[in-house]
Design a protein around this nucleic acid. Structure first.
Lengths: 101, 101
DNA sequence: ATAGTTTATCGTAAAAATACGATTGTCTTA
DNA sequence: TAAGACAATCGTATTTTTACGATAAACTAT
């Protein structure tokens, strides 16, 4: 009698969520860029990427929703940086996922 | 004069690819399951997951395409296991990604 | 007030992901 | 040869993702 009711663990849902945030090259690029620069304005990111400003904005939104970045308004600009707390958590989760045998 | 022609690095494309494989809880579950069991048949996985056999097969295909698992036919079954070489590469890439400042 | 700068959001179109049932192909066993 | 077991594939429907241009919102500077 198969279970078939198994939902996933909270940890599995969480790592899938972080993985989804990293599942597009543009978002990997943005995270890497922010990690290097420590922080920067949206315009700097738009300059780097081969896509429209609105598309970049959408990617930033997803990264923010995943908890990996955070933005602060500095009129008339917005500065983004890595959310270090969740960054550490993501690192730990991926490390644990690949380590455990 | 913004570049705008920047494609992503091979490493960025690669990590995005691995992340995409991990971006669904069912696939995280499958990988974790295979990592624990060392190897098992498709039927064992289907038993565990709350979805149709055809859907599980689809997820297995994606994991295989991403290079994270491999299957061997043992009539009338198919046994899957982690592709350790790429598993190690993925671990290294995620570790490097989150480590570098 | 007006004009300019910066970024988010809206509306939309096209593509990809997800899930299902049904079918097919392969191999065993009766 | 026929029947059964297993897993992949097909066809399809629904949802989500991705991208764009246009517009709106927030603030500065003139």
């Amino acid at each position: 009698m198969p279970t078939k009711t198994v939902p996933y663990t909270a940890g599995q849902e969480r790592i899938a969520r972080y993985a989804k945030a990293l599942s597009h090259p543009a978002r990997v690029y943005i995270l890497r860029f922010l990690d290097k620069q420590c922080a920067c304005y949206v315009g700097n990111i738009v300059e780097e990427l081969p896509m429209a400003q609105s598309s970049v904005s959408q990617h930033l939104k997803e990264l923010k929703n995943a908890g990996l970045i955070q933005g602060t308004v500095e009129p008339p600009k917005v500065k983004y940086c890595i959310n270090r707390e969740n960054w550490r958590e993501a690192r730990a989760m991926f490390a644990a996922f690949f380590e455990e045998g």
